[in-house]
Protein backbone atom coordinates (compact mmCIF):
# COMPACT_ATOMS: atom_id res chain seq x y z
CA UNK A 1 0.00 0.00 0.00
CA UNK A 2 1.20 3.48 -0.80
CA UNK A 3 2.09 5.79 2.04
CA UNK A 4 0.92 8.97 0.36
CA UNK A 5 -1.91 9.67 -2.08
CA UNK A 6 -1.73 12.71 -4.33
CA UNK A 7 -4.64 13.80 -6.51
CA UNK A 8 -3.97 15.75 -9.71
CA UNK A 9 -6.44 17.12 -12.25
CA UNK A 10 -7.55 14.58 -14.82
CA UNK A 11 -8.24 16.90 -17.71
CA UNK A 12 -7.73 20.18 -19.44
CA UNK A 13 -5.18 22.92 -19.15
CA UNK A 14 -4.94 22.47 -15.39
CA UNK A 15 -3.84 18.87 -15.89
CA UNK A 16 -1.21 19.83 -18.49
CA UNK A 17 0.22 22.51 -16.24
CA UNK A 18 0.21 20.28 -13.17
CA UNK A 19 1.97 17.43 -14.97
CA UNK A 20 4.49 19.88 -16.42
CA UNK A 21 5.12 21.31 -12.98
CA UNK A 22 5.86 17.93 -11.39
CA UNK A 23 7.93 16.80 -14.37
CA UNK A 24 10.02 19.94 -14.13
CA UNK A 25 10.64 19.17 -10.46
CA UNK A 26 11.92 15.70 -11.38
CA UNK A 27 8.71 14.14 -10.12
CA UNK A 28 7.25 13.12 -13.47
CA UNK A 29 3.86 11.48 -13.28
CA UNK A 30 3.24 8.48 -15.50
CA UNK A 31 0.01 6.63 -15.90
CA UNK A 32 -0.13 2.94 -14.96
CA UNK A 33 -0.77 0.56 -17.80
CA UNK A 34 -3.50 2.73 -19.27
CA UNK A 35 -6.19 0.20 -18.51
CA UNK A 36 -7.24 1.79 -15.27
CA UNK A 37 -6.16 5.16 -16.45
CA UNK A 38 -6.94 7.02 -13.29
CA UNK A 39 -4.06 5.85 -11.14
CA UNK A 40 -0.46 6.88 -11.80
CA UNK A 41 3.02 6.76 -10.28
CA UNK A 42 5.46 9.52 -9.46
CA UNK A 43 9.07 9.25 -10.59
CA UNK A 44 11.45 8.41 -7.75
CA UNK A 45 8.62 8.11 -5.23
CA UNK A 46 7.71 4.43 -4.91
CA UNK A 47 5.54 5.20 -1.89
CA UNK A 48 3.28 7.61 -3.74
CA UNK A 49 0.03 6.81 -5.48
CA UNK A 50 -1.23 9.48 -7.86
CA UNK A 51 -4.94 9.68 -8.62
CA UNK A 52 -6.39 11.60 -11.53
CA UNK A 53 -9.62 13.33 -10.59
CA UNK A 54 -11.59 16.39 -11.63
CA UNK A 55 -10.68 19.58 -9.77
CA UNK A 56 -14.04 19.49 -7.99
CA UNK A 57 -13.55 15.89 -6.88
CA UNK A 58 -10.03 16.69 -5.68
CA UNK A 59 -11.48 19.43 -3.47
CA UNK A 60 -14.04 17.03 -2.02
CA UNK A 61 -11.40 14.32 -1.52
CA UNK A 62 -9.23 16.79 0.39
CA UNK A 63 -12.20 17.82 2.50
CA UNK A 64 -12.97 14.21 3.35
CA UNK A 65 -9.37 13.17 3.85
CA UNK A 66 -9.57 10.60 1.04
CA UNK A 67 -6.29 11.87 -0.35
CA UNK A 68 -3.37 13.44 1.50
CA UNK A 69 -2.47 16.01 -1.09
CA UNK A 70 -4.11 17.50 -4.15
CA UNK A 71 -3.71 20.14 -6.82
CA UNK A 72 -6.84 22.21 -7.28
CA UNK A 73 -8.04 25.80 -7.56
CA UNK A 74 -8.04 28.07 -4.53
CA UNK A 75 -11.54 29.22 -5.59
CA UNK A 76 -12.85 25.70 -5.10
CA UNK A 77 -11.02 25.19 -1.81
CA UNK A 78 -12.38 28.39 -0.30
CA UNK A 79 -15.87 27.35 -1.35
CA UNK A 80 -15.62 24.57 1.24
CA UNK A 81 -16.78 27.10 3.82
CA UNK A 82 -16.07 25.96 7.36
CA UNK A 83 -14.46 22.77 6.00
CA UNK A 84 -11.76 25.01 4.51
CA UNK A 85 -10.18 24.73 7.97
CA UNK A 86 -9.29 21.15 7.08
CA UNK A 87 -7.12 22.35 4.19
CA UNK A 88 -3.51 23.44 4.35
CA UNK A 89 -2.54 25.44 1.27
CA UNK A 90 1.08 24.34 1.08
CA UNK A 91 2.20 26.12 -2.05
CA UNK A 92 0.61 28.39 -4.66
CA UNK A 93 1.66 26.99 -8.03
CA UNK A 94 1.53 30.14 -10.16
CA UNK A 95 -0.77 28.70 -12.84
CA UNK A 96 -4.50 28.21 -13.19
CA UNK A 97 -4.94 31.88 -12.39
CA UNK A 98 -8.46 33.29 -12.42
CA UNK A 99 -10.29 36.03 -10.57
CA UNK A 100 -13.55 35.45 -8.76
CA UNK A 101 -15.54 38.62 -9.41
CA UNK A 102 -18.92 40.26 -9.16
CA UNK A 103 -20.15 41.20 -12.64
CA UNK A 104 -23.16 43.33 -13.47
CA UNK A 105 -24.84 44.10 -16.80
CA UNK A 106 -22.59 46.39 -18.86
CA UNK A 107 -25.72 48.40 -19.66
CA UNK A 108 -26.04 49.41 -16.02
CA UNK A 109 -24.13 52.63 -16.65
CA UNK A 110 -25.03 53.86 -13.18
CA UNK A 111 -23.45 50.85 -11.46
CA UNK A 112 -19.67 50.70 -11.13
CA UNK A 113 -19.09 49.81 -7.49
CA UNK A 114 -20.46 47.50 -4.83
CA UNK A 115 -22.05 50.52 -3.14
CA UNK A 116 -23.99 51.13 -6.36
CA UNK A 117 -25.09 47.50 -6.40
CA UNK A 118 -26.23 47.81 -2.79
CA UNK A 119 -28.35 50.85 -3.64
CA UNK A 120 -29.80 49.31 -6.77
CA UNK A 121 -30.69 46.08 -4.97
CA UNK A 122 -32.43 48.00 -2.18
CA UNK A 123 -34.35 50.07 -4.75
CA UNK A 124 -35.38 46.93 -6.66
CA UNK A 125 -36.67 45.32 -3.49
CA UNK A 126 -38.48 48.47 -2.38
CA UNK A 127 -40.15 48.86 -5.76
CA UNK A 128 -40.94 45.27 -6.75
CA UNK A 129 -40.67 43.36 -3.48
CA UNK A 130 -38.17 41.08 -5.24
CA UNK A 131 -34.53 40.76 -4.37
CA UNK A 132 -31.63 41.20 -6.78
CA UNK A 133 -30.86 37.78 -8.29
CA UNK A 134 -27.23 36.70 -8.17
CA UNK A 135 -26.31 33.69 -10.28
CA UNK A 136 -23.29 31.76 -9.06
CA UNK A 137 -21.94 28.37 -8.15
CA UNK A 138 -19.76 30.00 -5.49
CA UNK A 139 -22.51 30.26 -2.88
CA UNK A 140 -20.43 30.62 0.23
CA UNK A 141 -17.90 33.12 -1.07
CA UNK A 142 -20.64 35.17 -2.69
CA UNK A 143 -22.58 35.31 0.53
CA UNK A 144 -19.53 36.21 2.60
CA UNK A 145 -18.43 38.91 0.16
CA UNK A 146 -21.81 40.55 -0.33
CA UNK A 147 -22.44 40.40 3.38
CA UNK A 148 -19.11 42.08 4.05
CA UNK A 149 -19.97 44.83 1.55
CA UNK A 150 -23.32 45.46 3.20
CA UNK A 151 -25.38 44.15 0.29
CA UNK A 152 -28.27 42.16 1.69
CA UNK A 153 -31.25 42.60 -0.60
CA UNK A 154 -30.26 39.76 -2.90
CA UNK A 155 -31.10 36.17 -3.69
CA UNK A 156 -28.69 33.56 -4.91
CA UNK A 157 -29.72 31.63 -7.99
CA UNK A 158 -27.56 28.54 -7.93
CA UNK A 159 -25.96 27.96 -11.29
CA UNK A 160 -24.46 24.70 -12.41
CA UNK A 161 -22.81 25.84 -15.59
CA UNK A 162 -22.56 28.80 -17.99
CA UNK A 163 -23.20 31.23 -15.17
CA UNK A 164 -22.29 34.16 -17.41
CA UNK A 165 -25.35 33.49 -19.56
CA UNK A 166 -27.81 33.75 -16.67
CA UNK A 167 -28.59 37.50 -16.99
CA UNK A 168 -29.12 37.21 -20.74
CA UNK A 169 -31.36 34.21 -20.13
CA UNK A 170 -33.43 36.35 -17.79
CA UNK A 171 -32.86 34.24 -14.69
CA UNK A 172 -30.45 36.57 -12.87
CA UNK A 173 -29.44 40.22 -12.67
CA UNK A 174 -25.78 39.89 -11.76
CA UNK A 175 -23.31 37.03 -11.45
CA UNK A 176 -20.36 35.93 -9.35
CA UNK A 177 -17.95 33.83 -11.38
CA UNK A 178 -14.33 33.31 -12.30
CA UNK A 179 -12.81 35.20 -15.18
CA UNK A 180 -9.36 35.32 -16.68
CA UNK A 181 -9.49 37.91 -19.44
CA UNK A 182 -12.98 39.34 -19.05
CA UNK A 183 -13.78 38.43 -22.67
CA UNK A 184 -16.51 35.95 -21.76
CA UNK A 185 -18.09 38.52 -19.50
CA UNK A 186 -18.03 41.16 -22.23
CA UNK A 187 -19.47 38.72 -24.77
CA UNK A 188 -22.38 38.24 -22.37
CA UNK A 189 -22.83 42.00 -21.92
CA UNK A 190 -21.44 42.02 -18.41
CA UNK A 191 -18.76 44.06 -16.69
CA UNK A 192 -16.74 43.62 -13.48
CA UNK A 193 -17.43 46.06 -10.67
CA UNK A 194 -14.37 48.12 -9.74
CA UNK A 195 -14.32 46.81 -6.18
CA UNK A 196 -15.96 43.50 -7.03
CA UNK A 197 -12.85 41.30 -6.85
CA UNK A 198 -13.56 38.50 -4.39
CA UNK A 199 -10.49 36.34 -4.85
CA UNK A 200 -7.37 36.17 -6.99
CA UNK A 201 -7.34 32.43 -7.42
CA UNK A 202 -4.60 30.10 -8.67
CA UNK A 203 -3.83 26.42 -8.48
CA UNK A 204 -2.67 25.33 -5.04
CA UNK A 205 -0.71 22.35 -3.82
CA UNK A 206 -2.94 21.60 -0.86
CA UNK A 207 -2.90 19.04 1.94
CA UNK A 208 -5.81 17.64 3.90
CA UNK A 209 -5.76 17.74 7.69
CA UNK A 210 -8.46 15.07 7.56
CA UNK A 211 -6.19 12.50 5.89
CA UNK A 212 -4.30 9.98 7.94
CA UNK A 213 -0.80 11.40 8.23
CA UNK A 214 1.26 8.40 9.18
CA UNK A 215 4.97 8.95 9.79
CA UNK A 216 5.61 7.44 6.35
CA UNK A 217 3.12 9.82 4.70
CA UNK A 218 4.74 12.80 6.39
CA UNK A 219 8.24 11.74 5.46
CA UNK A 220 7.27 11.07 1.86
CA UNK A 221 5.50 14.38 1.43
CA UNK A 222 8.35 16.24 3.16
CA UNK A 223 10.78 14.71 0.66
CA UNK A 224 8.57 15.81 -2.24
CA UNK A 225 8.29 19.33 -0.83
CA UNK A 226 12.05 19.51 -0.36
CA UNK A 227 12.54 18.52 -3.97
CA UNK A 228 10.00 21.07 -5.20
CA UNK A 229 11.67 23.76 -3.16
CA UNK A 230 15.13 22.70 -4.30
CA UNK A 231 14.01 22.92 -7.91
CA UNK A 232 12.57 26.35 -7.34
CA UNK A 233 15.78 27.49 -5.67
CA UNK A 234 17.77 25.97 -8.49
CA UNK A 235 15.87 28.13 -10.95
CA UNK A 236 16.20 31.31 -8.95
CA UNK A 237 19.81 31.00 -7.83
CA UNK A 238 23.11 30.99 -9.70
CA UNK A 239 26.36 29.62 -8.39
CA UNK A 240 29.17 32.14 -8.72
CA UNK A 241 32.70 30.72 -8.46
CA UNK A 242 35.71 32.98 -8.43
CA UNK A 243 39.43 32.55 -7.89
CA UNK A 244 40.14 34.99 -5.08
CA UNK A 245 43.31 36.21 -6.80
CA UNK A 246 44.33 39.63 -5.54
CA UNK A 247 40.97 40.46 -3.98
CA UNK A 248 40.60 40.96 -0.24
CA UNK A 249 38.55 38.07 1.22
CA UNK A 250 36.78 40.56 3.51
CA UNK A 251 35.74 42.71 0.58
CA UNK A 252 34.44 39.61 -1.26
CA UNK A 253 32.46 38.46 1.77
CA UNK A 254 30.93 41.92 2.06
CA UNK A 255 30.01 41.78 -1.63
CA UNK A 256 28.29 38.40 -1.18
CA UNK A 257 26.23 39.79 1.65
CA UNK A 258 25.34 42.92 -0.32
CA UNK A 259 24.11 40.84 -3.27
CA UNK A 260 21.88 38.72 -1.06
CA UNK A 261 24.13 35.74 -1.70
CA UNK A 262 25.25 32.87 0.51
CA UNK A 263 28.59 31.13 0.57
CA UNK A 264 28.37 27.72 -1.02
CA UNK A 265 31.79 26.46 -0.05
CA UNK A 266 33.92 26.85 3.02
CA UNK A 267 36.86 24.71 2.18
CA UNK A 268 38.39 25.15 -1.24
CA UNK A 269 41.58 27.15 -0.87
CA UNK A 270 41.93 30.14 -3.16
CA UNK A 271 38.35 29.92 -4.32
CA UNK A 272 35.15 31.60 -3.30
CA UNK A 273 31.80 30.16 -4.34
CA UNK A 274 28.42 31.55 -3.49
CA UNK A 275 24.77 31.31 -4.46
CA UNK A 276 23.27 34.54 -5.61
CA UNK A 277 19.82 35.54 -6.92
CA UNK A 278 19.98 34.81 -10.67
CA UNK A 279 19.14 38.35 -11.72
CA UNK A 280 22.03 39.80 -9.72
CA UNK A 281 24.64 37.20 -10.71
CA UNK A 282 26.23 39.22 -13.59
CA UNK A 283 26.48 42.33 -11.43
CA UNK A 284 27.96 40.36 -8.53
CA UNK A 285 30.48 38.67 -10.79
CA UNK A 286 31.60 41.91 -12.38
CA UNK A 287 31.99 43.46 -8.95
CA UNK A 288 34.07 40.51 -7.76
CA UNK A 289 36.30 40.87 -10.79
CA UNK A 290 36.64 44.57 -10.10
CA UNK A 291 37.85 43.73 -6.59
CA UNK A 292 40.71 41.73 -8.15
CA UNK A 293 39.14 38.26 -8.10
CA UNK A 294 39.01 36.14 -11.19
CA UNK A 295 38.35 34.39 -13.34
CA UNK A 296 34.71 34.46 -12.20
CA UNK A 297 32.24 31.88 -13.50
CA UNK A 298 28.48 31.83 -13.19
CA UNK A 299 26.74 28.43 -13.17
CA UNK A 300 23.17 27.34 -13.24
CA UNK A 301 21.91 24.73 -10.76
CA UNK A 302 19.13 22.23 -11.38
CA UNK A 303 18.44 21.88 -7.69
CA UNK A 304 19.61 23.59 -4.53
CA UNK A 305 18.63 21.64 -1.43
CA UNK A 306 18.73 23.24 1.99
CA UNK A 307 19.63 21.47 5.23
CA UNK A 308 16.03 22.10 6.35
CA UNK A 309 13.46 22.88 3.71
CA UNK A 310 11.23 25.86 4.44
CA UNK A 311 8.18 24.33 2.75
CA UNK A 312 8.40 20.99 4.51
CA UNK A 313 9.05 22.67 7.86
CA UNK A 314 6.06 24.91 7.42
CA UNK A 315 3.91 21.98 6.39
CA UNK A 316 5.01 19.94 9.41
CA UNK A 317 4.00 22.81 11.64
CA UNK A 318 0.66 23.32 9.93
CA UNK A 319 -0.35 19.68 9.99
CA UNK A 320 0.64 19.35 13.66
CA UNK A 321 1.21 16.06 15.37
CA UNK A 322 -2.24 14.54 15.46
Amino acid sequence: MSALTIAVPSKGRLQEQTLAFFADCGLAISQDGGKRGYVARMAGQADVEVRLLSAGDITAALRDGDVHVGVTGEDLLRELGTAFERIVMVKPLGFGRADLVVAAPAAWLDVTTMADLDEVSAAMRARTGKRLRVATKYLKQTHAFLDGRGVDDYRIVESLGATEGAPAAGVADVIVDITTTGQTLAANHLKTLTDGLILRSQAQLAASRAASWTPAARATFAAILDQIEAREQGRSLKLVRAAIGGASPDALNALVARMGGRLASESEPGLIAFYCPAERAPEASAAAAALGAGPVGVFGSDYVFERVGTLSARFAEAIGSH
Binding site: A107, M124, D173
Partner: peptide
Protein backbone atom coordinates in the same frame (compact mmCIF):
# COMPACT_ATOMS: atom_id res chain seq x y z
CA UNK B 1 -23.33 47.37 -28.94
CA UNK B 2 -24.31 46.59 -25.36
CA UNK B 3 -27.45 44.53 -24.96
CA UNK B 4 -29.45 45.23 -21.84
CA UNK B 5 -29.58 42.12 -19.64
CA UNK B 6 -30.80 41.74 -16.05
CA UNK B 7 -34.01 42.91 -14.50
CA UNK B 8 -33.80 46.69 -14.86
Amino acid sequence: RIVLVGGR
